[in-house]
Design a binder for these strands. Sequence first.
RNA 1: GGUCUGGUAGUUCAGUUGGUUAGAAUGCCGGCCUGUCACGCCGGAGGUCGCGAGUUCGAGUCUCGUCCAGACCGCCA
Length: 587
Amino acid sequence: MYRTHTCGELNITHVDAKVKLSGWVQKSRDLGGMTFVDLRDRYGITQLVFNMETNAELCRSARKLGREYVISTEGVVAVRSNKNSKIATGEIEILVESFSILNSSEVPPFTIEKETDGGDELRMKYRYLDLRRVEVRKNLELRHRMAIEIRNYLSNENFLEVETPVLIKSTPEGARDFVVPSRMNAGQFYALPQSPQTFKQLLMVAGFDRYFQIVKCFRDEDLRADRQPEFTQIDCEMSFVDRDDVLDAFEGLANHLFKSIKGVEIKEKYPKMAYTEALRRFGNDKPDTRFGMELVDLKEIATGKGFNVFDSAAYVSGICVEGCAEYSRKQLDELTDFVKKPQMGAKGLVYVKYNEAGSFKSSVDKFYSFEELQKWADAMGARPGDLLLVLAGDTEITRKALSELRLEMGRRLKLMEQKTFKPLWVVDFPLLEWDEETARYHAMHHPFTSPYEEDLELFKSDPGKVRAIAYDLVINGVEIGGGSIRIHNEGLQQQMFDNLGFTREEAAKQFGFLMGAFRYGAPPHGGIAFGFDRWVALFAELDSIRDTIAFPKNNAGRDVMIDTPSTISQDQLDELHLTLKKPESKK
RNA sequence: GGUCUGGUAGUUCAGUUGGUUAGAAUGCCGGCCUGUCACGCCGGAGGUCGCGAGUUCGAGUCUCGUCCAGACCGCCA
């Protein structure tokens, strides 16, 4: 037997008990006459004591224990004379009577402590060591608890978890697929699912009524801090529902998680904000509503006064930053540089300081009188002491830049408290999006999304205006999930494919199975999918989803620990009927 | 595909205008130490300054290329 207890559970009530513990040597402190060893496992840290007076030989051998040695030890629980209130077992220690080294360890390349000295790259390469750290482990524990709560909640709501295949069919719509060559079918490929979308719809046709799955999905696109090539979705679908049925059901799930995991009760219904309204008020479709500082359109009042930058702009808007009229030249230059970064793309930044005395100091004093600037200030609800920041230019670019500027000011003024949660539904997304590259419309959400019936006639006149019965759950500026009411009618689905520029043959080849199913009594249905990794990151207060994943990929999609992607042998290639374009020299 | 930032001891970093023998902290090794828990004190080892070219009397420092890492834009239905 290796242990009677874990390293996290012994306390004052166990005094005098004879116990066995096993774990890793976190650290040893050799004081000469006695040696302390911190023994660590998943559950905590327990102090072992060795004393030269009691057992000199044992004490001397304990001095040789290196960091991360795995040992098993036997001894008696004793009250500490000097207690440590920082750890759960801090009131007791083990008077060791014997121990054995189960495995030695090389000196680890970084310290395995709460605050490690290791950088990201090293930690990823030795991820199995990094995972020993409490800071990383607690994220995975949180992830586990959330998964349990989700399963319990949805199961209680009659949702059935059903597994769908991972080897499926490639489709050109949407993200790039990861493909898997088929050995038994020369020249043919499976694709890994970007989501179980069509399968969950087929489950609705099959009458499962309420489905969910916590499921891996795959997209072969470039990575970001919040994007991994393989990621986990909470995928859900319901039958006989309209939009608000779905929103209510999953507001329930979200509220359950807030309460059971974060101890937060959100009493009010989540606001529903139209996509166009979100863009107008916040400049993006995932507004962070923890603070105001909304975008105010100044096109009407600020143009026609001879300031060509504004007069020639399609879009002129600003934000009012409370209490920042005192900003220095240097600070304003920083903000200007911020919006002029190539990724941001704004040409410049106009500022107006609304001084405490009621006067204005702006970068456009030449063009605007006091009265005119007063109009701006009034339009923006500014008060003396505030700073107005105004951008102008192309609508899309400028709106995005202003939205980023708003978030930057929110960060600077510390308006984005991580303990505060502001969820909302963004609804009424456009059904279609014009794609310059392919010069055609494509589905903004996916081609199975139902349009509003009253918008159907716009298909002919102005397809970009057709609204989808689609919705996103946004919490604190993070898109946590999204879904839609689906098309369940073959004719409409066919029309949708027509509008997306599919030929009948293409549509039949790629999605014939779905449209075929629609002929056999498909119920009205809709659903949603949540980014599980992102949700965990939000609750763990992490900026990156990487530390919510046990073994994540790096920026370039590599797993640096197992060193993959990697080449395969010629035999494997032959078996898969594959010929590489040119010999790969890289490993 | 693009923009930006970084790469110096095991690790995290500093390194001035281009100038003698490249530093600190921590970790590691050795010694001392009986109540530590970031133990303390003394001593020691440890460097292809990512790699390759170039400029220069002289390059960690400047230039170009390249590789790696990270953030972002494009992309992500």
